[in-house]
Design a protein around this nucleic acid. Sequence first.
DNA 1: TGAAATATAACACTAAGAACTATACTATAA
DNA 2: TTATAGTATAGTTCTTAGTGTTATATTTCA
Lengths: 106, 106
Amino acid sequence: MTKKYKSEAMAALHESMQGLHDIGIVPAKTMRRFDASCLAPIEDMAPEEIVKVRNEAGVSQAVFARYLHVSLGTVSKWERGEKHPSGPAITLLNIIKRKGLESIYA
Amino acid sequence: MTKKYKSEAMAALHESMQGLHDIGIVPAKTMRRFDASCLAPIEDMAPEEIVKVRNEAGVSQAVFARYLHVSLGTVSKWERGEKHPSGPAITLLNIIKRKGLESIYA
DNA sequence: TGAAATATAACACTAAGAACTATACTATAA
DNA sequence: TTATAGTATAGTTCTTAGTGTTATATTTCA
């Protein structure tokens, strides 16, 4: 396995696989608390889905923006497809989608 | 109250106060599920604190980056103070700080 | 000894996001 | 009816977070 990885994503995934491959043997320093389910590729949030998530939370764009710590304009652009949420933003949106708006601040 | 608000943050806060002010009366469309504690200004994550949060999670920069859906380089820059986390990123970091790394994917 | 994980570092480039302003629709209250 | 305020879209300019890549050094471990 002298293979080089093209991206750090692959490197991290390899790191995961390595740990899962070594049956029961969890490498000391690395790998601890490592969960493969987290590393599942995140689904990109479609504009309509963002609107849906926000509506289900029952808040306006302005309030939603405050929760996520982005500007109102940014939320508007997400929902119109003008801009795409960044990685951390998508992560937050998914958390809200799965666990509700309350889960990101309580 | 014909006052204009200088920022959307203030506007959102006003929206909150309005709802809390009207004793027991929760405005129909707006205000629902609104929580003032969420709108508390988020504390900016210091570089050392990011390192601390990550170390308490017990993961490497690469794994931490995968969880947050940012690049490894970005985490490195955060921890060295070269770049500051974006709003959503700070939000995630605070969630991890308070509720653990598991809380952002489970 | 060597392989791999870890972390720092510097580069050029892209695009997310901020801040601001204007417009328009809608619902409620006077 | 007329205001007023909340809501959302939209456009513009600008800043900077973040990406992707590569290189280097140290450490860990087989």
